[in-house]
Design a protein around this nucleic acid. Structure first.
Lengths: 204, 204
DNA sequence: GTCTATATCATGATAGAC
DNA sequence: GTCTATCATGATATAGAC
């Protein structure tokens, strides 16, 4: 009797594939390594997923969704700018803490074929996502609550401060001179730091 | 007579290898592609560089040096904090604008073997590099010129805002909804934006 | 120094037994 | 569904002629 019930094989493959692809990227990943990690053999891997490409597509789409959808939802909420910023920082940092390889993986693969990504995974429903944020900024500026600021630059700043440490970690640790534990500490404190840093920067 | 004088073959190889490695990373790079780009054949490539690994080592060391050395020098300068920040932004953004693949390449490869990098390329002379920056911050705080701020977080903020757009470009363009030209415009304006953003954030 | 083979090996993928 | 071969391809690296 095929073991099926208790630990679904397809799920085991997806878990292992996620792990390996995220760490090593498409080019650096071997089907053998995924099979080993999932405790099955290559043959079975190809039984579930026709090719490395098709398996990769699955993993990549999931990862891209994770990275984009959260921010998309927040940007489109009709809430005051300050809350929006807090939410972005809070939600995104939490998610990245649990998936530290995610941004590097997605942005890398994205960079190898940007066209494909833009066409396939986004469509044009992203158009109004950012205008939601830009509008929030404009409102506050017009009301005299914050300084005049380019919403696009502000968005880049926030997203940069949130994501970059997870990508630049080795460099940061060496330059600042801290070990893994201290880095984790900094990340923990970082949510509050970014929130107040940004607010201070735009407040009138 | 071997053509040697006018376009040095080794340099041509280094140029092509830089181009291909930076774009595709170690795993994605084929020796054939480097040879093609340099208009020579694979055999000759191995005549100049024993292996793909040795060629990669050369390219990676150069890239890492470019990414680290500039910041190291600036951080160690004995100048006021404000000038230090301006210099970091100015110099780094200029360099990255001319080498937009550099940070992605270095940080990626770095992440694949951080140990090797830390041991080999840095040593311990980085220790006092960051203390130079931390000291600049402390001075200003003590003098009551800026708000109390964690120098490590501040450093992360600055470096993130400078580097991330070059890594996250495809994502940013899609989310904000801008084309290549508009992105270039934003990058140009970004130097001044970051400078004032940071100063506003820390000013008392 | 430069080129044309060619050896060697690793990897993605398939065929077929159980 | 799962495993054990095995094939076919493509990549690094070397040998040897010019």
């Amino acid at each position: 009797m095929p073991k099926e019930i208790d630990t679904n094989t397809e799920q085991k493959i997806l878990d292992s594939a996620t792990k390996v692809f995220h760490e090593k990227g498409y080019d650096g990943t071997r089907m053998q390594e995924i099979a080993d990690d999932a405790n099955i053999n290559k043959g079975l891997l190809h039984y579930y997923f026709k090719s490395k490409d098709s398996l990769f597509e699955t993993i990549f789409s999931l990862a891209l969704g994770k990275l984009i959808s959260k921010i998309q939802v927040i940007l489109e909420l009709e809430i005051p700018l300050e809350m929006k910023i807090d939410l972005m920082v809070e939600e995104y940092m939490n998610m990245l803490s649990k998936n530290s390889y995610l941004p590097r993986f997605v942005l890398n693969e994205l960079n190898k074929n940007p066209e494909k990504f833009i066409a396939k995974h986004i469509g044009n429903n992203m158009k109004n996502t950012f205008s939601g944020f830009a509008l929030s900024v404009k409102k506050e500026v017009d009301a005299g609550l914050i300084r005049q600021v380019d919403a696009r630059q502000l968005f880049m700043n926030i997203i940069s401060m949130i994501i970059f440490p997870f990508i630049g970690r080795p460099m940061i640790q060496v330059v600042i001179g801290i070990d893994n534990k201290e880095f984790q500490e900094l990340i923990k404190e970082r949510k509050d730091h970014i929130k107040s840093f940004v607010k201070q920067a735009i407040k009138k």
